[in-house]
Each structure stands twice: as structure tokens, then as C-alpha cells.
Simulated assay, not measured.
Amino acid sequence: MPDDEERVGAELARTLEDAARRLLERGPGDEEGVQHTLGLIVQGAIRTVPHVDQAGISLVRRGGKVEAHVPSSEVVRDLDVLQNELREGPCLDSIWYEQRTLIDDMGAADRWPRYSAAARDRGVGSLMSFQLFASTGSAGALNLYAARPHVFDEGSADIGALFASQAALALHGAQRIEGLHTALSSRDVIGQAKGILMERFGVGQSRAFEMLVASSQNTNLKLVDVAIWLADEKEKGASRG
């Protein structure tokens, strides 16, 4: 109905605006920016998409392992873990193959027999899953659950897809900002380590950096980890002195 569509649209707009505002308000020292944004997405989906009772986000990490993030319940977390074990499920298909997956009756879903049975046993009647993003080195899905079967239709899926597309943009922004903060922090600590070596060995910046690189290669540690260790050792020495 038009009134319902207007209400859902207004709620969706408010939710996304809130996510964007909180993202922008996040300070440089807030290391939970991505997780916080994921939490806003899940809460917003439950509030906004009709008939959704539970929600969660699946993200793929290195090695292809799927991890559950900010699940609204242990059931949602368990189902992500189960998909890893069974290597089947609608969330995995949404991540790798499809932009959206809609199951209006989990009892009749024979595409993933073991997963479907487990989901039914945990009180899931319907499910929608939407691809959040799929680019080199990253993939994810927004997963929405309902206790009753036959409550999701194409209208629900369209709203869920719209929400997921905007959520993907918010998540990408949060990851980008966190990456910038990490890069800045790494640059600062590497500069600090170079200064320590320059003072200790009486060398210039280029030579100090070469020493850091050589130490990184010899210890099989990342350059920034070597720099952090050196800065920590300097601080410990100062406190002991």
C-alpha cells in the first residue's frame, strides 16, 4: 500500500542518514568504526525491512572463511558457522554468485538440505540474503531472517536490496576511513622508529629506513611491527632509566 511504502521509505532514509552521521562523527582514535557501522546496518535492517526478526552480516576473510559480524542473536551466529562447516547455504551463494537470495519457506528449500533443516530447527521460517559487495579481496552479505514462512515477497526483497546497496556504501566508507587511520598510524610509528635509529647509530633517514627494511626481512615481520617493537623498547628503556 502507498502509505506503507512511504512509511518504509521514510524509515529507510532516517536509518541511512543516522548511519552516515555516526560514521562522520567517528573520531580518529575510534578503532571500532567498521564494527559500529555493521551494527547500525543490522539494527536498521531489523527496524526497516518488513517482517525481519533477526539479521546479521557475513564477511569473507583471507582463506575464504566466512565470519559472522554483529549477529542479532546466537541463532544467526550459529547459522554462519554452520555454513562454513557444511560449505553450503544461501548466505554463501549471495556472497559468491547472486545479488539476492529469497527463501519464502525454509521447510520447502531443498537447495541446501542440511542447512535448511538446521535453520528450521532453530526457528527460521523465511530468509533473505543480499550481496553487500564483491570486489577483489572482499565479499559479504546482509542476511535477514523471519520466524514465519511466506512473509517475504518480491516487495520485501526490493526494500531489502535497496537497504543493502546503501549499507554497502556506508560499510565501504567505514573501511576506507579505518584504512586511512591505520596508514597514518603506521606512518607515524615508522617515522618514530627511523628517528630512534638515526639517533642511536648516527645515520640519515634513508639509511635508517634501510635498517628497518632489513630487520623486517630478517625477522619475517611486517615493517610496521618492527617499528612498533623498536618504539616500545625505546619507551621501556626510558622508563627503566
Rank of each mutant, 00 (worst) to 15 (best):
V49Q: 06
Q205T: 12
P71N: 15
R77W: 08
V34H: 09
F201G: 01
S58T: 05
Q175W: 00
V60T: 05
G29V: 00
G237D: 11
V226P: 08
L171Q: 06
G56T: 13
T101N: 14
Q83D: 03
I95A: 11
D232C: 02
G63I: 01
F209S: 08
G107M: 01
M211R: 06
P2F: 06
D110C: 05
D30Q: 12
A45N: 06
L40T: 00
A167F: 00
V226C: 13
V226A: 08
A109S: 07
E98K: 13
L38S: 09
R120H: 10
A118I: 08
V81I: 08
R111G: 04
A208N: 03
V81D: 07
D158T: 13
Q175H: 03
A68K: 12
V203H: 09
R100S: 12
V224N: 09
V213S: 07
L142Y: 02
I57E: 09
G44C: 08
G39N: 07
L16T: 07
L221G: 04
A55L: 07
A167M: 04
K65R: 15
L92R: 15
G33N: 11
G241Q: 10
V60C: 06
L40V: 00
Q166Y: 12
I196T: 10
K236R: 11
L102Q: 04
S73Q: 08
T15A: 11
S129N: 09
H172M: 04
F152Q: 02
G123T: 08
L221E: 14
V213A: 11
A147T: 11
V124P: 04
A55C: 07
A109L: 07
A157F: 05
L40C: 06
D110F: 15
V124C: 10
G140R: 02
R21G: 02
A10S: 05
H181M: 05
G33D: 10
N218L: 10
R14Q: 10
R122M: 14
G56M: 09
A109F: 15
D153Y: 09
N218C: 01
L40N: 07
Q35P: 01
S94G: 13
P149F: 15
D232G: 01
S116N: 07
W112H: 09
P28G: 10
Y97G: 02
T15I: 01
E5F: 13
Q83E: 11
L169R: 00
S215E: 06
R100K: 05
D225Q: 14
A118H: 12
M211V: 01
P149A: 15
A139G: 15
P149K: 15
R100N: 05
G27Q: 09
R187S: 12
F152V: 01
R114T: 06
G63L: 06
V34G: 04
H150P: 00
S135F: 00
Q175T: 00
A109C: 12
D78M: 03
E32A: 13
L79W: 04
D110E: 15
L127W: 11
G44W: 01
A227I: 03
M128I: 00
D30I: 01
V124R: 09
A157Y: 05
